[in-house]
Design a protein around this nucleic acid. Sequence first.
DNA 1: GTCTATAATACGATAGAC
DNA 2: GTCTATCGTATTATAGAC
Lengths: 196, 196
Amino acid sequence: MAKKSERTRQRIIDAANRLFYHQGYHNTSFTDVVDATNIPRGNIYYYFKTKDEILIAAIRHRTERISAMLDDWSGKYRTPIERLHRFVNILEDSADSLTRFGCPMGSLNIELGKNDPALQEEAENLFKVFEAWLAEQFDELGFAGRSHELALRVIAMGQGISVVSHVHRDAGFLRRERDRMLSMINQLVDGEDSCL
Amino acid sequence: MAKKSERTRQRIIDAANRLFYHQGYHNTSFTDVVDATNIPRGNIYYYFKTKDEILIAAIRHRTERISAMLDDWSGKYRTPIERLHRFVNILEDSADSLTRFGCPMGSLNIELGKNDPALQEEAENLFKVFEAWLAEQFDELGFAGRSHELALRVIAMGQGISVVSHVHRDAGFLRRERDRMLSMINQLVDGEDSCL
DNA sequence: GTCTATAATACGATAGAC
DNA sequence: GTCTATCGTATTATAGAC
């Protein structure tokens, strides 16, 4: 079992990640993290020198979790098409939170991109991990020449769907568009003109 | 000519709109507005009782400007297809700022949607105005049954493109995807299967 | 209507006892 | 390593002179 100090550190990161997602980074205060964890201020400062450091640790933790998830999917699903379907079904798995709070990585990047270039660069990795994995799948499907382009397009579709469903609090739109994305992927694999 | 007090009020709204777009609402302080306008604090509070009131006035002003722009386009362009092309070309007109700061209405809605429901409802109108206008164009094209669905989809595509180009600071992606959107609209009008 | 001074509080961060 | 008390500053907002 991990040391207690490691678990404390992780509790801070988990609470911060949730707060930054639900409230936004600049709208979340240090006191919010204290209250959410019941860990005293000074103790949190023992683990992280600044609020920015908490954010960076939170982003890195998210990135690692996503990497692990994608590795798992690469092992669990044998064909690229199954993997792409699994990816698109994130929209279903997270329909409620996407509708309420937007996409965690999209909303964070947009907030940080405005005025915090160093932090946004860290958050950009969340996208890069997904995009590299998606591009692998398109490579395997024989779209080597434009696999990255297809990956970006799939990500952009997911982002657009998340934004609109969030703006209107409309999970129905999200689910309808998810179904469309699944069809488009099927069409691409079947060699039809698929709009992707 | 408008009264001086009206012009002062408008100067506050314009500066706030710019700051909220470039820095985000919660990351913009009252002092930022003071510094940007050179209008003393007390004077700004004479026009707006709270920071939230400045935001609401700024959103309403944006909404009115968009409405006026769309009315102008409805008069200036005679066919729905020309109007849809004009809409998509926003991506070209604003390529630089979209890449640097994201979409003004998308990023604002995402920020406010997290924790400020009353303010987000106001910001949602920015989307509704665009969507109603787009739906009119699809109605005129003979897609009456699904004109709102098509409008939402066009908006979602624009949002997704904006997010991805902002995240990677990649105006090239934005321009390539804009071209694709124009083709998709042409295909839709030509009766081809267009993915829209 | 215009502007300065300042109140009241929230913020990120530190000092130092234990 | 843990925790409390507090510093210095930035924040939104107000009071009140002009």
